[in-house]
Nucleic acid binder design. Structure first.
Lengths: 190, 190
DNA sequence: TATATACTTGAGTGATCACTCAAGAAAGCC
DNA sequence: GGCTTTCTTGAGTGATCACTCAAGTATATA
């Protein structure tokens, strides 16, 4: 009996993610979203409920995509080479709406307001860190990383380096690719 | 003939800096500023002209303070020990309004809007990087760093690591001090 | 074809945004 | 004490914020 929506919900979330990623939470107004999603306010609120609800969907998708990308990379190259390639991949995509990590941007913007989206972003970052630790552990098993090192410690530092790289990549006049190479090379010495 | 202002302009800029540093540009409303500075709108605009003008003053002060702190540290400890101590110092101050760097937060928030304050923050970051490079060079002269290494390359990586550390320190559940120690220790191997 | 069930539209909600300005209060100089 | 000059006050500006809702439209079932 019902009428079908004219939009592709998946596509809308992608476009919202790009907008939020680039402009941040406060920097993205409903006017911006209406323009990017080609939706009038009524349809928007019928479909997503609120700006925050859509931001949450976008954030979750961003995190899921990142995890998937790393998984695929690990399947293709093995753990250590995946970890080495990942930083460069994160900053070389010119089509991406921003170089910096959307999770980090969200934490930095919303942590001071005690906004639930900040802790959600942080949870996603923690999950990423766990994934890094697993890859470091696998790299140890493969003999590519010294077995006396703690994979969790390595992952914590790797995550921090990655976040720093992606902040640097957002700046003007910084050769971020060189930093990415240095991070990758330093993993060969473990 | 004139009447003197009731406020200490220096103190007001400090308080504004703390507020902007913690809550960001969009996250700090004029209501927030009026409350923190104990000023009515009229006095505020007579004294500072606009929210952006005050943000600029706050940003410049933040950058100047950081440079001064590093200078003092270098005078006290020498170049290499100053570079080793600086990361820990940046995150251990519990009285600071935030762990993350205000310059980085400003770039991340305002770069997508092409806001002049973003490039100003970036310029401050570049100046910091230059200061790091000078210290690395001095450390080379003192024999604490391998002379075959390029101080500018070292400074670029150090800056990136520092930014990553301070993003990590803003997160919940991350042992940032451990990362700071790792960064300091890695400088001993140069 | 008639009806039920969504979806779409867009003017309009109160709240908050950065900011203005006229009026009043206080201090230094004559 | 009178005058000038600046500072302080706070109600008020239009613009924009996230969001609502009643009316209109399209579609699948009966």
């Amino acid at each position: 009996m019902p009428r079908k929506p004219e939009y592709d919900r998946n596509d809308l979330i992608d476009r919202a993610r790009d907008l939020f990623w680039r402009r941040g939470w406060a920097g993205t107004s409903l006017k911006n979203l209406e323009a990017a999603l080609q939706m009038k306010p009524g349809s928007f609120y019928a479909a997503f409920g609120s700006k925050d609800a859509l931001f949450e969907l976008a954030l979750d998708r961003y995190a899921k995509d990142g995890q998937l990308r790393l998984q695929i990379l690990a399947a293709e190259l093995g753990p250590i080479k995946a970890l080495q390639r990942f930083p460069e991949m994160a900053i070389e995509n010119d089509a991406a709406p921003a170089k910096a990590c959307m999770l980090a941007k969200t934490v930095l913007e919303l942590h001071a307001r005690d906004h639930p989206l900040a802790s959600r972003a942080n949870a996603h970052l923690l999950k990423m860190e766990t994934q890094f630790a697993e890859l470091f552990q696998q790299a140890q098993s493969a003999g590519d990383v010294d077995k006396s090192l703690d994979p969790k410690v390595l992952a914590r530092r790797y995550q921090s380096d990655l976040l720093g790289l992606r902040v640097s990549a957002e700046r003007e006049g910084v050769d971020a690719k060189a930093i990415a190479t240095e991070i990758a090379d330093s993993l060969s010495l473990l």
